[in-house]
């Protein structure tokens, strides 16, 4: 038998595992349907009601963000998929077989993270571009203001939407490594994305200005935004911060995996 396996072999093994269960394809289909489906739905609703809008509304209209709004629904699908990539192994006990084949646990985390990063980057980008193009063509057909990818800030926003989904997949994965059970992980994930923003809303507004912009969902909005406001981060800073959250959570997950008995 040949020489020692490397991270490449571990990654190939994890990729094989990822694509040999049906849940993967159901999850990816959900991502596609939510992102593109909501783009269609939202843009058609806007097109239908366009003439009822006030001038101020029309001026504030953001054709990019509205066509990409589906990502704020799809973020739950990708988070669950990222989490399940590890928590499903705990649920079935398959994690023990996995660790028997790959006892270098940091290796295992890296391999799984690479599989998610590559797959979800490719699929998310494809999906957000499709959502964007669909949305713009719906606007164009109604003679609404539309934008094109030739505009570099628009192109950037669309790419960022895909990166947002990719990073959230990895956040779900990192939480799954730490928490191990699918249901607990999903609860915490939903709490971070939905509940904490609601709680922050009840804080004094002077605090809110300092806290809100750091929340993952707000970072996502900043990443898509063409015109940064004083209350939020510029797209680059927002993307970097979210990437740091993601790296920290996955790193804590890796340490948890290394420290605890399987």
């Amino acid at each position: 038998m040949s020489d020692s396996p490397t991270l490449v072999d571990t990654t190939r093994s994890e990729m094989l595992k990822f694509r040999t269960v049906r849940a993967t394809f159901i999850g990816l289909a959900t991502l596609v349907v939510l992102t593109i489906g909501l783009a269609v739905l939202i843009t058609i609703v806007i097109r239908t009601n366009w003439n009822q809008r006030s001038l101020a509304d029309k001026l504030a209209f953001d054709p990019v963000a509205t066509s990409l709004a589906g990502i704020f629904f799809a973020q739950f699908a990708v988070g669950v998929m990222g989490a399940r990539f590890i928590t499903a192994e705990y649920a079935s006990g398959a994690i023990r077989t996995t660790l028997t084949a790959v006892p270098r646990r940091v290796h295992l985390v890296l391999a799984k993270a690479i599989v998610l990063l590559v797959t979800f980057f490719v699929v998310s980008e494809a999906v957000v571009f499709a959502a964007f193009i669909t949305g713009q063509s719906i606007y164009r057909s109604g003679h609404l203001p539309s934008v094109s990818l030739a505009d570099s800030t628009v192109l950037r926003a669309v790419i960022m939407a895909g990166i947002y989904l990719t990073l959230l997949t990895l956040i779900g994965f990192g939480l799954g490594l730490i928490l191990r059970t699918t249901s607990v992980t999903i609860s915490v994930y939903v709490t971070i994305l939905l509940i904490i923003p609601i709680i922050v809303n009840f804080l004094p507004s002077s605090w809110q200005d300092h806290i809100t912009k750091y929340l993952p969902s707000n970072l996502g909005e900043s990443m898509l935004s063409q015109t940064p406001s004083v209350r939020s981060f510029a797209w680059g800073t927002a993307a970097l911060l979210l990437a740091i959250y993601c790296a920290v959570i996955v790193a804590v997950g890796a340490v948890t995996l290394v420290r605890r008995d399987a």
Partner: peptide, 22 residues
Amino acid sequence: KALDPSRSARNHLRALATANRI
């Protein structure tokens, strides 16, 4: 029984073999 129930037997072994260059 510590296996992912939704994967086939052959794919299960293929994943193990790949990870160990078998």
